[in-house]
């Protein structure tokens, strides 16, 4: 126990580890907030699809030799998010297919580009770390940390300020429209924010595991809580705890950051499902 604590203190003395922890927590917080909307709106796949798009865009940026891939990746992902969310509600099946198509398409293009043009010697290592985000979070620069912090703050602020509108529009879009909420504008905003969060989250867990970060806290919270506010708060808290726990664990036992966080999320989900089951049994 003592040795573990010492090891944590030792790692904590490095600024890049502290940065990673801060950024990880912020990203987890944002993605769980969005997750609540996405799960309830039946857009769970959107996160997955967009993360693959972001992977494709990142490869493109690498091939073009851009030193800063963030603007290009963000731009492409935002465009795709807007496109997918617009076609979503009116054409259910078409929307599903569109997400799947875009998702695998972007993945294939990304890998192809990396294969054809990559100057790196360790191609499979590069691909693997983009997909599973193994070490990238530990190599964040000061600037990236500030950017992550700033964008996260914007997301949280948006969520707080528009909380009631988000509820109204998630619960019943048509009714929200009749009360005079500009539903399309909010959809657009939400699409942009989803894209931002996904590009941020890629740094933490890699593009294949982002959905887990978005979905698990929300779904776990819904197992146990029965109103929107409690679900939102619980999802946020869970996500932060899981991300922090996962990151510390990965430092201690030397596992990849992304998959460790997702494992913790999964365990919490199982625990919450068990709570629901036990409570349900008691009610019956």
């Amino acid at each position: 126990m003592r040795a573990m604590a010492e090891q944590l203190v030792f790692y904590g003395s490095y600024p890049f580890v502290r940065h990673a922890l801060v950024v990880g927590v912020l990203i987890a917080l944002c993605s769980s907030l969005l997750g609540v909307i996405l799960v309830l709106k039946r857009f769970s796949f959107l996160g997955d699809g967009l993360s693959h798009v972001a992977f494709g865009a990142m490869s493109l940026a690498a091939v073009l030799g851009l030193t800063d891939d963030m603007p290009l990746t963000l731009g492409i992902t935002i465009l795709c998010a807007v496109f997918l969310l617009r076609s979503g509600p009116n054409a259910k099946i078409k929307g599903d297919a569109a997400i799947a198509m875009l998702s695998v398409g972007a993945l294939a293009i990304g890998y192809l580009l990396m294969n054809l043009f990559s100057a790196s010697v360790n191609l499979s290592g590069d691909v693997c770390s983009t997909l599973f985000g193994s070490t990238s979070i530990l190599t964040l620069s000061q600037r990236e940390v500030w950017m992550c912090a700033g964008l996260s703050l914007v997301v949280v602020l948006f969520y707080l300020l528009f909380y009631h509108k988000i509820f109204a529009l998630t619960f019943d879009e048509d009714f929200a429209k009749t009360t005079g909420i500009y539903v399309e504008a909010y959809h657009l905003l939400i699409a942009v924010i989803i894209a931002v969060v996904i590009v941020l989250a890629m740094q933490l867990v890699g593009s294949l595991l982002i959905s887990a970060l978005i979905l698990f806290p929300a779904i776990s919270a819904m197992r146990v809580f029965r109103n929107f506010r409690a679900v939102t708060i619980c999802a946020a808290v869970l996500s932060v705890i899981c991300a922090l726990g996962g990151m510390l664990l990965s430092i201690l036992i030397g596992t990849p950051v992304g998959s460790t966080i997702v494992m913790v999320d999964l365990l919490v989900f199982l625990a919450f499902s068990a709570i629901e089951y036990v409570r349900g049994g008691a009610l019956r």
Partner: peptide, 24 residues
């Protein structure tokens, strides 16, 4: 409106839903 399938498993309290009518 007629109820949508989405609302059937939406975690929301009665008060939250009624209040959302004041949004306008």
């Amino acid at each position: 409106p007629q109820q949508t399938s989405l609302q059937k498993d939406f975690p929301a309290s009665v008060q939250e839903i009624v209040l959302s009518g004041c949004q306008g």
